[in-house]
Computed example of a mutant assay.
Amino acid sequence: MAMHEIIARFCRLTGRNICSLSVKCTRNTTLPASRRYISRSTGNSIQFRLDERTAHSSLDLFKKDTGVIYRMLGLDPSHVQDNPERFRDWAVVFGSEEITGGRHYWEVTVKRSQEFRLGVAEAKMAREDCIGTNAASWVFGYTQRKWSAMTSNKMVPLQLVGKPERVGVLLDYEAGLLALVDTERPKIIHSIRGRFRGPLCPAFGLWDGELLTHSGLEEPESLVGC
């Protein structure tokens, strides 16, 4: 079992937030040119699956690779196909499509999870890092019944946000905006500003329960212009 996974579980048992730990931010590493995705999304209505090649050994994909479930024991890392794109220290998986421009919207259903992260990350983000701990990822995290906006190993607590079963994610590449969306109203709960300089992938971290992604959706009319 990877040391970071052991630390993460210890933190949950002792009531500490893993995000409060000092995490060394690793510079982005260049991955082999063999990366292959369905397509490069520059318009709207992004449609993606989860990329098994990036999935940590404790994560199982299901429902035609649109959902992910956390397995406490998971697979023995030595039995997982050796792939430089795979996260081996953190329970993270990327979406299968790179985003190089445009405005995109997708939703995530959360089931039986008390600790997860969702957002975007640079396609070539270092696999030794966890999403939200470096300048190459922008995510919204949920742990200890609280939401936070996370990037560059910094956390901004979000106030008056419960735990909805389904949330939306809005990405405006050119505007440098990532937003968490209340799907019932719908409206933006909180947004993160960033400088997107290269291809991005939808990114997910999961430490219990399961997540189901819903892509290929049109952006709600109430969000247009936000």
Rank of each mutant, 00 (worst) to 15 (best):
W106D: 05
Q81P: 12
H79T: 14
K111L: 13
V108N: 02
E97Y: 04
F87W: 13
G102M: 02
E97R: 00
P77Y: 09
G102S: 09
D76L: 12
H104W: 00
W90Q: 08
F87E: 08
F94W: 11
S96L: 00
E85Q: 13
V110M: 12
N83P: 12
R88S: 11
K111S: 13
K111Y: 10
I99E: 08
W90P: 03
H79I: 12
A91K: 05
G74Y: 10
R86C: 03
M72W: 14
W90S: 07
S78G: 11
I99M: 03
V93S: 09
F94R: 07
E98C: 00
F94L: 14
G95K: 04
G102P: 03
P84L: 09
E98D: 12
G101Y: 04
S96A: 07
L75H: 15
D89F: 06
S96T: 00
D82W: 09
V92Y: 00
P84I: 06
F94Y: 13
A91G: 04
K111G: 07
T100H: 02
I99Y: 02
V80P: 08
G101E: 06
D89L: 11
V92L: 03
T109S: 14
G95R: 03
T100I: 00
I99G: 01
V92A: 06
R103S: 13
I99A: 02
A91E: 06
G74I: 07
R86S: 00
R103E: 15
D76G: 08
G95M: 01
L73A: 14
D76W: 10
D82R: 09
S96G: 12
R88C: 10
F87L: 09
H79A: 13
D76V: 05
A91I: 01
F87H: 10
T109Q: 15
G74R: 01
G74D: 12
V93Q: 01
D82L: 11
P77W: 06
F87C: 08
E85S: 12
